[in-house]
Design a protein around this nucleic acid. Structure first.
Lengths: 138, 138
DNA sequence: GCTAAAATTGAGAATGATTATCATTCTTGA
DNA sequence: TCAAGAATGATAATCATTCTCAATTTTAGC
């Protein structure tokens, strides 16, 4: 079990409210790449009083403080995931939409080199390979 | 001078029209990461009859046929660029918005390895490092 | 604990990029 | 040349996301 939400938010100076706790927990526990609308559906099921705007606001603030990452898989909405799971990148199938995660430390190392060369301070990155998965390439 | 638009479109089976030619030329010659609206402004200056919808349609079809790539730099609109220039990736400054291109063949190689391992056929990729550029990190 | 100030919320309106519609105009192939 | 199909432009529609604002909750100082 990682740090509880309360600690995480404290560390980042985000006030903890009932809504934010529920939203953050739902997202971080899902282990999926949830879009705002999907997340809203889940949260709304647990507490129908929570509004979509609050979901967006919470995602925004969590992103700003580096707790989560925003991704674009090309399906029209942004998706979010735990930054702690950030050591992985994605293979995205253009046919069936499957998302395969991978982790290649060598690539990370190369990225650091590139950044250094350009005197650039990297805060986060995003690597996506688009194509056809095994099934779909047949 | 690379292949003329006419050839490119022929190869990909895209009918060449006056509008498409102008749009494609403007984008490919710009060497920038143009958004649809920006591109429309440029094209519209040359021929005020061309509509925004046609710009979007042309970008869509060029993307579908692999002539250009769609990017999201997090500023609210998609940007497009020549696929032929695809051997580079991006460093994006979160403060000033500067976009630095880089090219790291080792990373490309690693990507191919990862793809192979996952039996994945890569058609394109996208690598973006977000952070602060030299100026802004001071 | 109590209270005013500040922060947060929910509902719905507003925004803005992108798509769809549809009548009109161009292209293409026979 | 001519009909059939494709492309265009203007505008309406869509849809994710953000903004507004009154009401509610939380926080900080006492």
């Amino acid at each position: 079990m990682p740090l509880p939400i309360k600690e995480l938010f404290n560390q980042k100076g985000i006030n903890l409210t009932y809504q934010r706790k529920l939203i953050a927990e739902t997202l971080l526990k899902s282990n999926r790449h949830l879009g705002a609308e999907e997340l809203y559906q889940l949260v709304h099921k647990k507490n129908p009083k929570i509004g979509l705007a609050t979901v967006y606001r919470t995602l925004q603030i969590m992103k700003d403080r580096g707790l989560i990452e925003k991704r674009d898989f090309g399906d029209g909405c942004s998706r979010y995931e735990d930054s702690k799971a950030m050591h992985h990148d994605h293979l995205i199938c253009l046919k069936c939409g499957a998302v395969i995660e991978f982790d290649e430390p060598t690539i990370e190392t190369m990225q650091m080199e590139v950044a250094k060369k350009n005197r650039f301070k990297v805060l986060s990155h995003r690597l996506e390979l688009f194509g056809y998965c095994n099934k779909c390439s047949k």
